[in-house]
Design a protein around this nucleic acid. Structure first.
Lengths: 261, 261
DNA sequence: CGCGTACATGGCACTCAGTGCAGTATTTCG
DNA sequence: CGAAATACTGCACTGAGTGCCATGTACGCG
């Protein structure tokens, strides 16, 4: 719950100039050094604390489990995402909002490309870490889904929509993120994720999703649903691919066009 | 990759009654009895093997971990799903195919409603089991995604589409499954899942642009509305949830199996 | 200044999951 | 009946995670 906030308070005493990393950072550094040079399962917690120069008991005071040291900032990121979603207003388009929330996670990865790539290689080949990452991702997905459930409350299949859209957003985000990680963090992570999320927005969102990924900061004001007599009629030939009809309907119902691909 | 197939070979002869793996089933029964009456974490493997009357070492010969005993048939189900997907032909509509594959999983749950409900209550309140279930679900999702990636090979964003659709299918399936489990397995699981998967099919199905009027033979049921000719007209109020319009259009365009409620 | 408190840390011992190894029972085939 | 293969059991060991208590240190208060 508060893995990052579990860190003891910073000592007020100015210790030299920049002795920021308390014990927690030393543990992360030691752990990654050993994980990379001899493997995750071949490294025991005793090895880590020995290299970090702290007691074994302290490790579990900073990280509830050995796996947690591999994801040292996810708790903070999850808290950021929750706060971001809680700060939305009713004017926000829900799907766009969860897409933006997903971009927060990408931002965390993009902060330390080298670290993220190392961790990616690690989690890719250690089943235990992969399983742990799944539980982390699941919490992100639940946060998005819970937000959408709130926004979709009252709709007939609100929870179904919320769960499906949240899963789609997470899947698109992860697809782009992993593609970026596989390229050793060389490409433009933001553009890749924007493209992937644009696909989801085109499928589920009512607002515009520009193919280039540069999204306009505005975009609110999609609600014109008070006009009950405002009826849209769409005609299509039988045999038309459904996605074309969907696009037609979407452009007719929404304020602006939804461009896909 | 063969947790369930780890079971020792039974002599092929005596298959008259139903005693395929005696020890394995005894372990599952003993485990669930103890899990339900005193909790998962409060039950040790020694407790289970003592109640089952076997040696402790035998437990780990049948189940690679303590968590596996809670999901004794998922390996078989995953193998079934993989085989089902591998047996598809190019004529199958990909999205429909993965939806049908998801229904296989539901079938496994529906085989033993009481057992499934018990397990659901267990996994809901034990974080370790929830994490393990995530890894199981992840393997299903990967199987669906890999199949779709194969079918979408050549498309511009084939892997992205595949991942997103697989995630959406799994999310819809789980939404319906959990709703059914929450009702103690009373309702119609099949109808619930059909409804949820119909939503995903409406959003993603028929996405391949097939030139010419040849529509996929999905559903194969008699077209209910043969009276209408070439053109279908749909009217909707502005502000209607998009998925409802999509469903409307889909049912109007052809018998595609969207479940009515 | 001395003392008590609070807290971070270290060390120890313990439980339990999971594994390797060796011995024993049971089956199967010659 | 004997030999090999296989399933089962017991035992000892590693390592993660936890509870408990001792220690060191900073802070506050009289």
């Amino acid at each position: 719950m508060s893995s990052s906030s579990t860190a003891p308070r910073r000592g007020g005493k100015a210790e030299a100039a920049a002795a920021k990393p308390p014990i927690r950072d030393a543990l992360v550094a030691a752990a990654f050094r050993l994980f990379l040079e001899r493997g995750y399962e071949q490294t025991t917690v005793d090895d880590i604390v020995a290299l970090a120069g702290v007691g074994r008991r302290s490790f579990f005071r900073y990280f509830p489990s050995k796996e947690d040291v591999v994801f040292p900032d996810h708790e903070r990121c999850l808290a950021d995402m929750t706060a971001f979603l809680a700060a939305s207003s009713d004017g926000d388009e829900p799907v766009r909002r969860v897409c933006d929330a997903a971009r927060l996670v990408l931002g965390m990865y993009a902060e330390n490309p080298a670290f993220s790539v190392q961790r990616y290689r690690l989690t890719k080949q250690v089943p235990g870490l992969r399983a742990y990452e799944l539980s982390v991702v699941w919490r992100y997905e639940r946060a998005l889904a819970e937000y959408l459930r709130g926004r979709f409350a009252g709709r007939r299949d609100g929870t179904l929509e919320a769960d499906v859209i949240a899963a789609a957003v997470v899947a698109a985000h992860n697809n782009a993120l992993r593609s970026w990680l596989r390229s050793d963090g060389e490409g433009d992570a933001g553009a890749t994720v924007d493209h992937a999320l644009g696909y989801v927005q085109a499928a589920f969102g009512h607002a515009e999703a520009e193919p280039g990924g540069r999204r306009s900061g505005a975009g609110a004001g999609a609600s014109a649903r008070t006009a009950a007599d405002d009826v849209v009629v769409v005609a299509a030939r039988r045999g038309t691919p459904l996605w074309r009809v969907v696009r037609e309907v979407e452009t007719a119902l929404g304020p602006s066009g939804a461009a896909r691909d």
